[in-house]
């Protein structure tokens, strides 16, 4: 569905790159997560893939279209949910969806149904300008599904939403996945990536550090952590140590030898810990 080779992008059209020589492939039906801290280049990548940012360097194929050429009809197959909600504040929720639906060539979804599944039923005829930030975000999200996209771009789909609504959004994404929709999802939230994505790419400073499935990442990195609680001079200490690093191994040995161990078990790392382990940076 998406094939990216040696993609780079500079906002200032010079050596200062926001995205540096990245390559990846997304197959049909896959939910692919772009996980990285803010400023990593996730939205920039989505911008290039959706054509909002002009293609500069590298080969990009999206939904069978070469991004070097401009072909508007490809958007009949594509849905885009934006990080910053962008709906007409002077139009009602329903009007926002109806007029958007008119812009597509093929059949579109019933706006009432979409508003219902994002929990905006009952507010159809209220102007989006009166909505809270979260409601506008849900409207933007609902709008991205109006044309039944085969390929769905989701930029931070749950950021800033309260947990109950975030859960609804996650359910919708899962339901779309079950229908066979391919998704490109960017997030700095490792739970989202973990729960929803078939594969994740770790991106930092515009570079992809690794691409793998959450499961295999956990297998590779998870088993190698040991969490140990011990008593030292009457006080309880808790440490998480890596069994792959010599310094940590030595430390484990010292603790076992010198102190009173309360609990000790190998632990499955969260994606966040793996991210820190791989990139040396935190997800913020």
């Amino acid at each position: 569905m998406i094939s990216v080779k040696n993609l780079s992008y500079s906002y200032s059209n010079d050596e200062k790159l926001a995205v540096k020589n990245i390559s990846f492939e997304i197959s049909k039906g896959e939910t692919f997560g772009f996980l990285g801290p803010s400023g990593a280049g996730k939205s920039t990548t989505q911008g290039i893939l959706t054509g909002l940012l002009k293609h500069q360097m590298g080969d990009v194929m999206v939904a069978g279209y070469d991004m070097k050429k401009v072909q508007n009809e490809r958007f009949n197959k594509i849905g885009v949910s934006f990080e910053q909600s962008n709906v007409y504040s002077k139009l009602t929720a329903l009007e926002n969806l109806k007029y958007y639906a008119d812009l597509f060539d093929g059949p579109t979804r019933d706006p009432h149904e979409l508003l219902k599944i994002v929990g905006l039923d009952g507010r159809e005829n209220d102007r989006a300008g009166e909505f809270s930030k979260g409601m506008k975000h849900r409207l933007t999200f609902a709008r991205s599904m109006i044309n039944n996209p085969e390929l769905w771009f989701l930029d931070e789909p749950t950021t800033g939403l309260d947990p109950a609504i975030a859960a609804t959004i996650k359910d919708i994404i899962r339901a779309e996945k079950a229908k066979g929709t391919t998704s490109f999802l960017t997030t700095h939230n490792m739970y989202i990536a973990d729960e929803l994505c078939d594969r994740v790419a770790f991106i930092i400073d515009g570079e992809i550090k690794l691409i793998d499935t959450p499961k295999s990442l956990k297998q590779k990195y998870g088993k190698k952590l040991v969490e140990v609680e011990y008593v030292k001079e009457g006080q309880l200490y808790k440490e998480t140590l890596k069994t792959v690093e010599d310094a940590d191994r030595q430390k484990i040995a010292d603790i076992v030898k010198s102190y009173d161990i309360q609990t000790m078990h190998s632990k499955e790392a969260t994606l966040e810990e793996i991210f820190i382990q791989v990139t040396g940076r935190e997800l913020i």
Binding site: T50, L52, N72, Q84, N86, Y100, R143
Partner: peptide, 11 residues
């Protein structure tokens, strides 16, 4: 309002 970007990703 950013609606131009939303327009730009339609056919």
């Amino acid at each position: 309002e950013g609606v131009i970007s939303a327009f730009a990703v339609t056919p």
